[in-house]
């Protein structure tokens, strides 16, 4: 009985070995202390090298994204001569007719442009006048009226080609974005 107790005792006081605590990660190599002078030198050297590389890269880096609709279509440009039409020869009356039509068209566009110009001039003049009057009445309100627009961006859509079709059932489909990405 006694021996059994002694055996238990010896079991309970068996020394427990624990290794010394490690302050840093096991996987990282311990860094040697570096001379601060050397460290500084290395830092400046590395910085200079990087800056130089960046500068030389910046010289050649600005490449605009290709604009497909403005690029030359190589396949069509190869056989462009096959698709040239012969010049149409007009009679003298036809030529006159076209010349008159062109002049009419130009005149009408010119008149519209003049109207636009007139509108712009009038609008600017009237706005200036109104603001000047406002300034006389109340400079605080003028200050508010003249401040840059806070609700930018302004978005507006042009008119649609046709009014909405009544009872139109949209077909089942998808829009898949195929814009070229540069990453």
């Amino acid at each position: 009985m006694l021996s059994v107790i002694r055996g238990l005792n010896s079991l309970s006081i068996r020394p427990l070995h624990v290794s010394a605590a490690v302050n840093s990660s096991v996987f990282m190599k311990k860094q040697k202390k570096m001379d601060p002078e050397v460290a500084k030198q290395r830092e400046t050297r590395r910085r200079k090298r990087l800056e130089k590389e960046i500068r030389s890269m910046q010289k050649h880096s600005k490449k605009p994204k290709p604009i497909d609709e403005m690029a030359l279509d190589v396949r069509s440009s190869k056989n462009i001569n096959e698709r040239r039409r012969e010049a149409v020869i007009y009679t003298e009356e036809e030529q006159d007719e076209y010349a008159v039509a062109l002049k009419d068209y130009t005149r009408s566009r010119n008149a519209l442009q003049r109207l636009d110009d007139q509108w712009i001039r009038d609008a600017m003049r009237m706005q200036s006048k109104a603001l000047a009057e406002l300034k006389k009445i109340d400079p605080v309100l003028w200050e508010k009226a003249v401040q840059p627009d806070a609700n930018l961006p302004l978005v507006s859509n042009g008119p649609a080609l046709s009014p909405p079709v009544k009872g139109y059932v949209a077909p089942d489909g998808d829009y898949i974005d195929t814009t070229r990405s540069w990453t």
Binding site: Q127, L131, V146, Q147, D149, P153, L154, S156, G158, L161
Partner: peptide, 23 residues
Amino acid sequence: APRLQLLVNILRAHTPVGVKVTV
């Protein structure tokens, strides 16, 4: 600043079909 609205107005009047204008 006050002239911007005039420009936007005239642009709105002239916008062609299906064009989106963002200022």
